[in-house]
Design a protein around this nucleic acid. Structure first.
Lengths: 171, 171
DNA sequence: CTTTAAAGTTCTATTTTAGAACTGTCAATA
DNA sequence: TATTGACAGTTCTAAAATAGAACTTTAAAG
């Protein structure tokens, strides 16, 4: 399977993975959320090759996650800032960080702490139901096919009307 | 940078990316959360090559996200189930799905809907502060170096005491 | 006139992934 | 008894992505 087919699948997870599901994009976005904006800044703090960084930035701009904005003329230089679509990735970033905080820390403890400006406390993110406000767990959730689903399987990976896909449609 | 150095970095995001930050792991985990457990089931619904699937399953088992359990003797067959560590990935999965629901849907609408068994409603996940319960946004959060941080930069990608890293320590 | 800085681009070598075929164990079937 | 099929992988080669380093362009600074 290729990246470009991934982004067309009838699955919101697959489509998002097409945007951020590679080794570098999330790390670049981490830097964005830490107020880094420039090519050199990304490159030096991540140690990513310049070639790949250029590619990834282009991709994130193409998907509308970042915007490329000139910050000086002659020589023309650009910086990358998060769009609203990019800012909306924050819950993903935070839940990833939180999982790492719980499951991937060594004896030295957390590499960083988060403080909520509104209430002043150090916090962890908690995912709750938009309707009742209770914390969510996988077992308390039912999935249903939505209007954008493909026939039988709600999150099936391929188009059933694709003749090439017949080996995958399975039993 | 290699995957194995990624998992040792003083950053919870980088460490988590070392586990789930590739093209396939999140899709495999999606299937796990949809109660798929077997090699053939993963392979046929994802269209992943058998080779890579075997690799990814090994990796997820190695990281303690899945457990490989025999479900029959002779011939010995195994299935893969989520550990608690794996179940804890649920907020990551849900926030990824939610972002896709908001930003990657076509005119047909969402591929799937989520119902909260506790309250009965279709819902969206919301990320809130563990201390005050308010929804979180990037701008309302301050980051601080924690006990597991490396000197100057709280989320810096490499060890400053690593002589090879000097080109990256930058200006 | 040379050096430096930023933001890339270009190149080759290495690693990963895709795609397909093959293996081993057993049960069911002809 | 021989054959087929299911399952859970392994093994191969070709194609694609990534690593690592050098090079380019524009313009200011020494």
């Amino acid at each position: 399977m290729k990246w470009d087919t991934l982004e067309e699948e009838p699955c919101s997870l697959a489509r998002t993975v097409a945007v951020i599901g590679d080794r570098w994009s999330l790390l670049i976005l981490r830097e964005c959320f830490l107020r880094k904006r420039r090519f050199e800044a990304f490159q030096s703090s991540l140690g990513i090759t310049r070639h790949l960084l250029a590619e990834r930035l282009k991709k994130l701009v193409r998907f509308g996650v970042l915007r490329r904005i000139p910050y000086q003329e002659s020589p023309k230089r650009y910086e990358y800032i998060l769009t609203q679509k990019g800012l909306d990735l924050y819950p993903i970033i935070m839940s990833i960080v939180h999982w790492g905080n719980i499951h991937m820390v060594d004896s030295r403890g957390r590499p960083m702490l988060h403080q909520h400006k509104n209430c002043g406390h150090m916090f962890d993110p908690v995912m709750v139901c938009s309707e009742c406000g209770e914390p969510l767990s996988a077992k308390a959730v039912h999935v249903h096919p939505g209007p954008g689903a493909r026939q039988t399987s709600p999150v099936h990976a391929m188009a059933a009307d694709d003749p090439k896909a017949k080996t995958k449609t399975g039993t």
